[in-house]
């Protein structure tokens, strides 16, 4: 569960990225956070992952109050999240399997658990047959599947994807979104930060629109509805 109360975020004097944001995302939801470039949507995502601490206000993510938490607690918050990036951020020198396995090592999983769970998530995202390949041998869509598998492998409460389809063609983008929807159907909260109107419109999901650092719309339904308000 994610709660933001009256959150302000500034990057220096006169540069306010968020101006009093209130947001609640319950467990099991699928939420799009949309808005134009510079609207503050990535700042919102960074507040959730604790890359940023709010300048003012309160941010609680999966029972961690990021406004007050110690730096040493940040890794434990991030373990409750699965983070997917636009540029995949896979480790090139490692194979697909190792990239996913690595996330389990970090939490101290046993070799037996790792073997079982990694195979399961690679199969879930449809990339098990390429487990021994290096990321550079895969297409963009396949790399993003690996990134999603890595985000999923520790069974996080929430997946947060920041422009996950930004580097993909429309067909691959749709595949990735379908995959995220499937993950959501299995019970994981999914938050997708994007500016791709067409993609958002293909799913009847909650859309939080942000512009100029303010939430200007928050409703169930597509991106165009936000534009019409």
């Amino acid at each position: 569960m994610i709660r933001m109360n009256d959150v302000y975020q500034s990057y220096g004097p006169g540069t306010k990225a968020l101006k009093g944001v209130d947001l609640r995302i319950d467990d099991g939801e699928f939420v799009f956070i949309v808005g134009p470039s510079g609207s503050g949507k990535s700042t919102l995502a960074k507040l959730i992952t604790a890359e940023l601490r709010p300048t003012e206000g309160r941010v609680v993510v999966n029972d961690f109050n990021t406004s007050k938490m110690k730096m040493s607690e940040v890794p434990y918050l991030r373990r409750t999240l699965g983070i997917v990036f636009q540029d995949f951020r896979l480790i090139e020198r490692k194979t697909v399997y190792e990239n996913v396995e690595f996330a389990m090592r970090i939490v101290g999983a046993s070799p037996r658990e790792i073997k079982r769970r990694v195979s399961y998530v690679l199969d879930l995202v449809g990339i098990l047959h390429k487990a021994r390949r290096k990321p550079t041998e895969l297409s963009g869509g396949e790399q993003q599947r690996v990134a999603i598998a890595r985000a999923l492998v520790n069974n996080p409460n929430t997946i947060i994807a920041d422009e996950p389809t930004g580097n993909l063609d429309p067909d691959r983008s749709l595949e990735i979104m379908m995959l995220l929807q499937h993950i959501n159907d299995l019970g994981t909260t999914v938050i997708v930060v994007t500016h791709e109107k067409e993609l958002v419109n293909q799913f009847d999901k909650r859309v939080v629109a942000i512009d100029g650092g303010l939430i200007i719309s928050d409703r169930q339904g597509g991106y165009f509805q936000y534009e019409q308000t």
């Binding site: 890794p75 991030r78 983070i83 970090i106 520790n154």
Partner: peptide, 12 residues
């Protein structure tokens, strides 16, 4: 880059 990834996926 690898360290940044490790941090983001919850490495201490």
């Amino acid at each position: 880059e690898e360290i940044a990834i490790m941090k983001m996926i919850g490495a201490t």
